[in-house]
Design a protein around this nucleic acid. Structure first.
Length: 378
DNA sequence: TATTATT
């Protein structure tokens, strides 16, 4: 069809333009060697510089965010620590899909410290988020990610880092493992602080045998995630319209993912929650806890010193949490013993309630339920 | 032979 061809050409140009933007958009040209390293998130007490190239003490980068997490949820999570100056979830220019990371800039440096101390390592759904200081934006730190293959199966992450660290500062390293056996797949990633370091590592290590290895390794720049989403868009265009809606298999896969997630998070055997299909949930106008923006959950018997973070920690692993709130006494600022959690999906909320109702938190046993419209009476 | 770290 002629119109289909025109549509394809249109999207092709969109992709080309986006690719050109990626190549041309250079940030301010400044370099710094004080970025966070791959192991800890230590602040190196930066000195104030008049030219604005010093490391920020308020700006954080947040990595390994769940795919479905929105900017509002990111702000809600980090806003529980302190006042936020700005917050941005980075999305693909073409598809709008989250790239799984974002930035949070606090007003006060102490809140940035606090966010690293309390939120780094927080488990949200299938991810463990990483919170660290953002390095000053610079063209020189972009495209510094390497893909390494042909590694000896016995090589550890530490040994991989030792091999590459001679070429520069390593920001992250990873060896991919078989999900069932846990054994190395012989491939991995190394992200350097600067692109020039990655270039030197390719020159020095591509085609070389690591000490003791029998086979040479391949080292090259990793594919860009935006390329993947462009491919996804293209393949989507070729997909027939009757395949766009998730069938039973996709639903089953989703359920499987939920079960896995729960086992990973708490090792609990979950109840079989009632599944609400589209029709039922539309019909049930007075369903408990449903507030239009999500499912509101009532959490009772919290300690006086409870804060929002404990609610994120408890409910985050069960699925998409959009908001948490601890109800406090106006004068003392102590928790009045209860709080609320809003979750997007009924299934995930139901499993969270089934798993956390009766949960022992310190010396208290929590009561967790969907929020009712009635006034709570003892 | 492929995860998502620079607005």
């Amino acid at each position: 069809m002629f119109s289909e061809s025109k549509t394809l050409i249109f999207f092709f140009f969109l992709i080309v333009i986006a690719a050109m933007e990626t190549q041309l958009s250079n940030g301010p040209s400044c370099t710094s060697s004080n970025g966070p390293n791959s192991v800890s998130n230590n602040c190196t007490s930066p000195v104030e510089m008049p030219n604005g190239t010093e490391d920020s003490k308020t700006n954080l980068i947040v990595n390994y965010l769940p795919q479905n997490m929105t900017q509002e949820e990111l702000k809600s999570l980090f806003g529980s620590i302190g006042e936020i100056e700005s917050c941005k979830l980075v999305r693909d220019k073409i598809t709008g899909q989250s790239l799984g990371y974002g930035f949070v800039n606090y007003v006060e440096p102490k809140d940035a410290d606090k966010a690293i101390n309390t939120l780094n390592g927080l488990r949200l759904q299938t991810k463990t988020i990483k919170v660290s200081f953002a390095r000053p934006s610079s063209a020189s730190i972009r495209d510094a990610n390497l893909y390494v293959s042909g590694l000896p199966k016995t090589m550890t992450q530490k040994e991989l880092e030792q091999l590459f660290s001679q070429y520069g500062r390593i920001i992250t390293s990873r060896i991919l493992v078989d999900q069932v056996t846990g054994v190395s797949r012989g491939v991995g990633f190394i992200r350097f602080d600067r692109r020039v370091e990655a270039e030197e590592a390719i020159k020095g290590l591509n085609g070389q045998k690591p000490p003791g290895a029998t086979e040479p390794i391949t080292v090259k720049f990793a594919n860009n995630p935006s390329q993947k989403s462009s491919q996804a868009l293209l393949s989507h265009l070729y997909q027939s319209p009757n395949r766009r809606y998730p069938g039973p298999l996709a639903q089953q896969a989703q359920r499987f993912r939920l079960d896995n997630l729960l086992n990973m998070a708490y090792g609990v055997k979950r109840f079989s929650p009632m599944t609400i299909d589209g029709v039922t949930s539309l019909a049930g106008i007075n369903l408990p806890g449903h507030a239009g923006t999500g499912w509101c959950i009532f959490v009772y018997n919290l300690a006086p010193d409870a804060d929002e973070n404990i609610l994120w920690q408890m409910f985050g692993p069960f699925g998409a949490v959009t908001n948490v709130k601890v109800i406090r006494d106006f004068n003392t600022n102590k928790c009045k013993g209860f709080g609320f959690v809003t979750m997007t999906n009924y299934d995930e909320a139901a499993v969270a309630i089934a798993s956390l109702n009766g949960y022992r938190l310190g010396d208290r046993v929590l009561q967790v339920s969907f929020k009712t419209n009635k006034t709570h009476k003892a």
